[in-house]
Design a protein around this nucleic acid. Structure first.
Length: 211
DNA sequence: GACCAGGTCCTTG
DNA sequence: CAAGGACATGGT
């Protein structure tokens, strides 16, 4: 792996840890994480929590409930997350995959990570980021999430942005523990939301020397 | 009104 | 394969 990228990423990880410490992130049971992972696509998390509350109020915040629900009921609950028709379809596709292949998320816990990932990626509407979010936050697997914020931070540090490269580098540098993966990803999002615009970063604590 | 948000898929060149 | 567009609501 690129030694340069590795040391840069290691530096980013360490400085973010120093800045933020332990922060809670993406709470909820497994089913709720799967649903949230779809809803948060290209959408602010605050809008997602509102939709999750509406789903809960309607008894629709679980994979079986989504599987058996009427599509219009799902659409109404998730409208505030945008792309609501597409997302309702994706939720149905995910629920269908889980229920028909495993009978529920509980039965997926013993399935090997690479096998789970492959299955998730076969579901229409689930790409690499969503799959990794589900694996890392929903199933406690060491699969690092590369999102738009990760790209921004790495761009600002001159690290090659290709997704597979970034995923490999972070997974090489971090201890192979889901908790460490979750924490680092949470740090990246917190930092980037505040300091990294789409075009340029306003401030960069990641810039300091040593590395 | 313009621009953006923790993506993914489909169509074009 | 790269680039562009569609999907849609809500906040700044």
């Amino acid at each position: 792996m690129s030694g340069s990228s590795s040391s840069e990423c290691a530096g980013i990880i360490r400085r973010l840890q120093d800045k933020y410490g332990e922060i809670p992130w993406w709470p909820g049971d497994t089913d709720e994480v799967l649903i949230g992972a779809i809803l948060t696509q290209q959408t602010r998390w605050e809008n997602v929590t509102r939709a999750l509350d509406l789903l809960k109020a309607g008894g629709l915040c679980s994979i079986p409930a989504i599987f058996y629900a009427d599509t219009p009921d799902i659409e109404n609950a998730i409208r505030c997350t945008g792309f609501y028709r597409v997302k309702a379809r994706r939720l149905r596709a995910l629920a269908t995959f889980v229920m028909t292949r495993y009978g529920g998320t509980r039965a997926m816990e013993g399935v090997p990570t690479h096998s789970l990932r492959e299955g998730l990626l076969s579901v229409p509407g689930i790409g690499e980021e969503t799959a990794d979010s589900i694996l890392c936050y929903g199933f406690n697997r060491a699969s690092f999430v590369i999102d738009a914020y990760t790209h921004r931070i790495c761009r600002c540090r001159g690290i090659p942005e290709e997704r597979g490269h970034l995923k490999a580098v972070f997974e090489e540098v971090l201890p192979r523990e889901p908790g460490a993966y979750r924490q680092t990803h949470a740090h990246i999002v917190e930092y980037a939301k505040e300091f990294c615009g789409k075009k340029r970063c306003s401030k960069c604590i990641l810039m300091s020397s040593d590395g």
